[in-house]
Every structure is written in structure tokens, then in C-alpha cells.
């Protein structure tokens, strides 16, 4: 990074630290913060989408749709996260590859499953093995986003379902008395009032999501916890910056980061709650 960094063995003190903290590995570490924050930002809209779809499906008058909603929320919530994260992305990945294999290599005669091996033709690989590493990482990132959205969407669906039921019936009946159609009631009264009841549950979900980011490494995305462990591990003379076991320091830094993220989220949720409660038929809204 700096000119004096060419031989780290000769420098010490501030210069050593400034070189150490800007070496390639640390840059990857800093970049992984962006990856994690990006994943969080990216999954939230999908979680809400899955949540709404699930909740509305649970309320549907068409029975199969209702069953689908119920099965989705109860099944996904019941499976341990770690199993889900091992299964869903691998199943998705292999599913995509099998479809591509069938389309692109229809003349392939060998079976896809050969003993333990999962073999598809080179052109069906997803991503292709010739793609640069960042494509593989982006692909893993997208799979992770989908897996997170499915899991947390199920929890969100249950929260939203409960919140929709919590809106006082009188509010909806008043809407009907004013001659609104069911659609209008839903859009103008039911949905806006629902948020107040859903927000505490959704904020819980957000907090859990923040802490779930190390699950990313299961999918090959190198997250902040992975890099902290890697950087903190003791380094022998083979490294340019030898040091002992510094994992405690790195993990303390992560602790501060996660606490900061939690603190900011709390503030944002407080504001949001305050805003949404205004004029609502709840204790917070009346005050």
C-alpha cells in the first residue's frame, strides 16, 4: 500500500501497523463488511415479499393456496437453519445444473449420478468453471440471498399473518360502513394499521438476520467472521507480518461492529414505530 511497506521486517511501530492493516488480506476483510451489509440490504425486500406472499396465502379463501401458506411457514420455521442452509443452496445449484445439462448436452449418455459423484457436462456447470472467481462468489451470494429470503420470509409471514389478525375488527367494519370495497378496506385501513403490530416481530427478525451472516461461509462466501478468524490466527515466519494468536482482538472488533449495527437498528425501529403509531388505535398511538 505505502512505499515503505516493501520489506515489513525492517519497519516497526506506526509504519508496521499502517502496512499490516492495509495488506491484501485486510482489504479483503474490509470488503467482506460491504458484502455482509449488501446481503442484509438485499435480502430485506425479498424477505418482506416472501412474508407478504406467505401471509396472504394463509388468509386466502382458496383452500390449496391456504394449505401452501401454512405448509411453507410451518415447515421452514421447523427446520434448523444450518440444515436448511446446507440443503437449499446445494439442491438449487444441482437443480439448475441438471436443467442446463438436459438442455445443453442432450447427447450426453452417461448418468449424472455416478456413485458419489455428481457429474454434468462442462457447458452445464453453473457458473462455468472457466468463469473468474468473483462470478463464483456472486453466484454463491445470490444463492445465499435466496436461502435467507426463504427462511426469514417464513418467519416474516407468520408475523405479518398475526399482525393482520390483530387489527381491530371495528376499524374494518367502519370502512365497510363507509361503503368501501374489500380491496379498498385492505389498502386504506387494514394494511396501514397492520404495521404497528408487525413491527416488533419484524425488528426481532432483523436482529437475528444481522447475526446470521456467518452462515454465509457455509455457501463459500467469505464473510467477516471468516476473515477475522483467518487474520487473527497465529502467523509464522512464512508470513510477511508474523504475530501470535490475535483472534481475541479481531473478535472484539467484530463485537463492537455488531453492537453498533444493533444500536443503529434500534434507533431506526424506534423512529419508525413512533411514526407509524401516530393516530393509531393503540396505547402508543393514543399517547
Amino acid at each position: 500500500m505505502f512505499e515503505y511497506c516493501t520489506d515489513p521486517k525492517l519497519i516497526e511501530g506506526f509504519q508496521w501497523w499502517s502496512c499490516y492493516l492495509t495488506n491484501g488480506k485486510h482489504i479483503s476483510f474490509y470488503f467482506s463488511f460491504i458484502v455482509v451489509l449488501g446481503l442484509l440490504a438485499l435480502t430485506v425486500p425479498f424477505i418482506l415479499l416472501f412474508g407478504f406472499t406467505g401471509a396472504l396465502a394463509q388468509r386466502a379463501s382458496f383452500a390449496p393456496l391456504r394449505w401452501f401458506g401454512t405448509i411453507y411457514t410451518s415447515m421452514v420455521r421447523g427446520v434448523p437453519d444450518i440444515i436448511f442452509f446446507l440443503f437449499v443452496p446445494i439442491a438449487m445449484d444441482q437443480g439448475i445444473e441438471v436443467i442446463r445439462h438436459k438442455i445443453k448436452c442432450s447427447d450426453w449418455s452417461e448418468p449424472i449420478r455416478q456413485g458419489n459423484d455428481f457429474v454434468v457436462c462442462t457447458a452445464a456447470k453453473m457458473p462455468l468453471s472457466s468463469s473468474p472467481q468473483w462470478v463464483h462468489e456472486t453466484y454463491g451470494f445470490i444463492l445465499a440471498t435466496i436461502a435467507f429470503a426463504i427462511v426469514f420470509g417464513a418467519f416474516a409471514a407468520n408475523t405479518i399473518h398475526g399482525a393482520l389478525n390483530a387489527v381491530p375488527k371495528g376499524q374494518l367494519e367502519t370502512g365497510a360502513a363507509f361503503g368501501m370495497s374489500p380491496k379498498q378496506i385492505f389498502r386504506r385501513i387494514h394494511l396501514p394499521q397492520m404495521w404497528v403490530y408487525a413491527l416488533p416481530g419484524l425488528s426481532n427478525l432483523w436482529m437475528i438476520l444481522i447475526k446470521a451472516s456467518p452462515l454465509l461461509f457455509l455457501l463459500g462466501v467469505e464473510d467477516i467472521v471468516y476473515w477475522a478468524r483467518e487474520l487473527g490466527g497465529s502467523k509464522t515466519h512464512r508470513f510477511a507480518y508474523p504475530h501470535g494468536d490475535w483472534r481475541l482482538g479481531y473478535f472484539l472488533f467484530l463485537l463492537v461492529f455488531y453492537l453498533f449495527l444493533t444500536w443503529v437498528s434500534e434507533k431506526v425501529f424506534d423512529r419508525l414505530m413512533h411514526k407509524l403509531s401516530r393516530g393509531q388505535n393503540t396505547a402508543a398511538g393514543m399517547a
Binding site: 462442462t122 457447458a123 472457466s130 468463469s131 456472486t138 453466484y139
Partner: peptide
Amino acid sequence: TLTKLLAGAAIVAITATSAMAGEVVR
């Protein structure tokens, strides 16, 4: 914007690389 950027990058990458599927050993 990040969503668009990533989605766009992924699409470009997938279409660009499928044209030249060489043998790369991972």
C-alpha cells in the same frame, strides 16, 4: 442500485463466459 448492479454484473458474466467455455481446473 446495488441490486441492479449485482444482477447486471451476474447476467453479463454468465452470458459472456458461456460463449467461451474453456477447460479450467478448479
